[in-house]
Design a protein around this nucleic acid. Sequence first.
DNA 1: CTACATTCCGTACCATACTACGGAGTCAAG
DNA 2: CTTGACTCCGTAGTATGGTACGGAATGTAG
Lengths: 136, 136
Amino acid sequence: MEPLTIGKVARLAGVGVETIRFYERKGLLEEPPRRPSGYRQYPEETVSRIRFIKRAKELGFTLKEIEELLSLRVDSASACEDVRQRAEAKIVDIKRRIRTLNNMERALAKLVSACQNRSPMSKCPIIEALDQSEKP
Amino acid sequence: MEPLTIGKVARLAGVGVETIRFYERKGLLEEPPRRPSGYRQYPEETVSRIRFIKRAKELGFTLKEIEELLSLRVDSASACEDVRQRAEAKIVDIKRRIRTLNNMERALAKLVSACQNRSPMSKCPIIEALDQSEKP
DNA sequence: CTACATTCCGTACCATACTACGGAGTCAAG
DNA sequence: CTTGACTCCGTAGTATGGTACGGAATGTAG
């Protein structure tokens, strides 16, 4: 497993070279070792890490939140109880997101079936679905 | 049900007055009727609409995508088949998001239980979980 | 050994989604 | 009828998350 250049990592992860340098500046990627010339040398797992960042971003997490997610690990350097608490807070947040998405999905399904019945719906079902979901 | 001023809508929806005018400029909210003085008069449903925008934003939808979601309705002015297709595309997208969030949640749960067993995990489980989830 | 691609760095620019400002007009409680 | 809060509008500024540029050094295929 030879180390990867920044350009190869970028292609494999589906981002631009500049994005990788940007994430490094922001602390989402740690500074990789360098060749004598100064060229960065990445381990392959960096590709997974960047792909994770991409997906998490699509789900509405900010880079700051993503950094928090990435720092959640049980290792010698982090206090277990602290990690557990932070992970549980994230789980609560994620559960809430899933619930909202489920409501949206149901609303859209209702819309599709109303369509097939040629029954016009006066109001926007997706707003109504989420309106309800505030209350329970 | 008296019409609401922009300030009341803002308080009820939990956004700033400027945000509402911004959404109006962007086409996410239609221009409300005005008093002779020029003051905007909103129906109450505008509050739900803005709350929907807020939630959808938190889930990672852009304002452009949110506009698309909000325009999905079966009414006299829109072709049923077109609405159905666009709604189904959104459903696919939402299902994918839910799947990814479920994977993240499982990974975090694993992390929490590893914590309780005091078993250190060398790698970040959340990245691994999503790595897998690309393949099936 | 050439030629072309890639990398380096700093800085500047970009789009999105707000947020603030300022000066004038409006509303509503006392 | 005053006074203080609210609204109007246009324009400018902010934060986030990139994206582009440009000139020098490095890498690599033929």
